[in-house]
Design a protein around this nucleic acid. Structure first.
Length: 229
DNA sequence: GCGACAG
DNA sequence: ATCTTGTCGC
C-alpha cells in the first residue's frame, strides 16, 4: 500500500518493512470481543510534542458514567521515529505505555486518540496499545485514515458506517458528536467491539465535539507541554 | 499510472 | 502533531 509522503525526508524502506512486519505479528494477538463488564473507570490518553524530538503523553482516568476526573499522569521522553502514516503507533505507543505505568487507578477500558482497527492492517494505535497492555481499548479519531463513508446526518448522534470498499468489512462508525461539527471516527480496538466503543463515546459526550476522556487528555497534554519546555 | 494518508 | 491573527457563524 505505497503511501505517498507529503514533504520531509523519505522514510527508510527497510524500516517501513520491519515495522509493518511487527504490526502483523502484533495483529495476531489482537482480540475482537465485547467488553466483559460495563466500565466503572474509563481512561483517555493523548500525546503532544513540547519540542520536535520530545513526546509527552497523558493519561486521565474518569469514573463512568459520572465522568468525574479521578487521576491524571504524564510521561515524556525522546521521539523514536518520524511520523509515517499507518505506523503512528511505533512513534507514540512506547511513551504512552510509560505514562500508563504511572497510573494508580487502572481503568476498565481506554479511549485512545487515534484509530483502532480502522487502519490499513487493522492495527491503529488504539489496537496496538491494547495488545501491548492487554487492556480493552477503542479508537476515537478526528480524521479518516482509510475506508469510505457517507456523510452522517447533521445532528448529534447521527452516524454512518466506515467501510473497506475492497472487502466490504465494517471498520468503524463515523459519528456526529455535536450538531454541525465535523464527525469523529470510532473503531474497535483490543477486547472492545464497535457497538461498545460507539456507546461509550456517546456516554462520554458533554456538549463538546470531543468525548471527555480525550478532551481532558488533550487539555492536559497541552498544559503539561508548557510546563516541560 | 493516479490517488490517498491517524497524530 | 506543530507553527499562528483575525474572523466567520451559531
Amino acid at each position: 500500500m505505497a503511501y505517498f509522503r507529503p514533504p520531509g525526508p523519505a522514510p527508510d524502506p527497510a524500516l517501513v518493512r520491519s515495522l509493518t512486519q511487527q504490526q502483523h505479528e502484533l495483529h495476531q494477538r489482537l482480540r475482537a470481543e465485547p467488553l466483559a463488564q460495563p466500565p466503572r473507570l474509563i481512561a483517555g490518553c493523548d500525546s503532544s510534542f513540547p519540542t520536535p524530538d520530545t513526546i509527552l503523553s497523558v493519561f486521565v482516568v474518569l469514573q463512568y458514567p459520572s465522568l468525574e476526573l479521578m487521576e491524571k499522569v504524564y510521561s515524556y521522553g525522546p521521539v523514536p521515529l518520524p511520523y509515517i502514516p499507518g505506523l503512528l503507533s511505533f512513534r507514540e505507543a512506547p511513551n504512552v505505555v510509560q505514562a500508563f505505568a504511572k497510573l494508580v487507578n487502572k481503568p476498565d477500558v481506554i479511549m485512545v486518540d487515534g484509530h483502532g482497527v480502522a487502519h490499513p492492517r487493522r492495527m491503529g494505535i488504539a489496537a496496538h496499545l491494547g495488545v501491548l497492555l492487554d487492556m480493552p481499548t477503542f479508537g476515537v479519531a478526528k480524521n479518516k485514515l482509510t475506508g469510505t463513508f457517507a456523510e452522517p446526518g447533521p445532528t448529534r448522534g447521527d452516524h454512518s458506517p466506515l467501510t473497506d470498499t475492497r472487502t466490504g468489512e465494517l471498520l468503524g462508525q463515523v459519528l456526529r458528536s455535536k450538531d454541525r461539527v465535523l464527525p469523529l471516527f470510532i473503531s474497535a480496538g483490543h477486547r472492545c467491539d464497535l457497538p461498545t466503543a460507539t456507546a461509550l463515546t456517546l456516554g462520554c459526550l458533554r456538549g463538546y465535539k470531543l468525548p471527555e476522556p480525550t478532551r481532558l487528555a488533550d487539555h492536559w497534554a497541552e498544559e503539561f507541554k508548557q510546563e516541560v519546555r
